[in-house]
Amino acid sequence: MSPLRLGWLGQRDDRARLLVFLLLALSWASLTKVSSAGLALGLALGLALSSGLGPLHVARRLRPVFSLLFLLLLLTPFWHPPGAQPLVASWAWGPSDLGLASAGLLSLRVLALSTLAIAALDVAPFDQSLQGLRGLGVPAPLVHTALLTQRALARFREDLTRIEAALAARGFRGRGPSAIPTYSAVAGGLLVRSVGRAERLEQAMRCRGYEGELILPDPPRAGLADWFLVLAGLALALALPLAERLA
């Protein structure tokens, strides 16, 4: 795999990037108008695409969100808040005007926040973002656990893939109640392996100077561009809710 090439947003101070993401997320989550939520989605997309993420990448990452939205769009229009009028007069329990507006608003907000999260997290390596969170005051044990979990999950997946191949090679199809004991054995085996691996990992860490506290590199000093990013993010976070109130 080629190394991740950082776009302009990825090159910013991790704390600044994540702080802007948090400010915008808090602000955009409270939007109440479809038009401003649509504008927020446009801004999030612009941010993602201009910072080097391809449209295909963004679409692929949004795929699980679309699945969630499908359910939302299917059910929310049938919501009848006080004052709602049915869209079809003869079908009182059918979709309502306010229900449909809520579905649109919720969908746009979810899409805007998800796209924003993609822009914030996918523009730099995950461990770098975690170190940024540490710089923002997230407790060290949480950050360290997340750092180590990332690699542990990758190894867990490798194990699972190997076990699945071994089961398939012996004719296991994994269907029906008869497969349950096999799945239980696999889960137990994976757990035992993980415990053994955790022990060896701790030994490896101790051999390289670990004494119970992970020491991460100090974040670099924030530059002018980083401060500009924070100020621009703050302005943007205030702008949309303010515009809604003034409108």
């Binding site: 390596p125 461990d127 690699r151 060896r200």
Partner: peptide, 26 residues
Amino acid sequence: GIVFQHSDDMLFTSRVSDDVAFGPRQ
């Protein structure tokens, strides 16, 4: 220094450079 039988047990961060830097940082 020690190198374990399974190299995977020694590589616990998500980037090679971070793994190599682990000892000096600690």
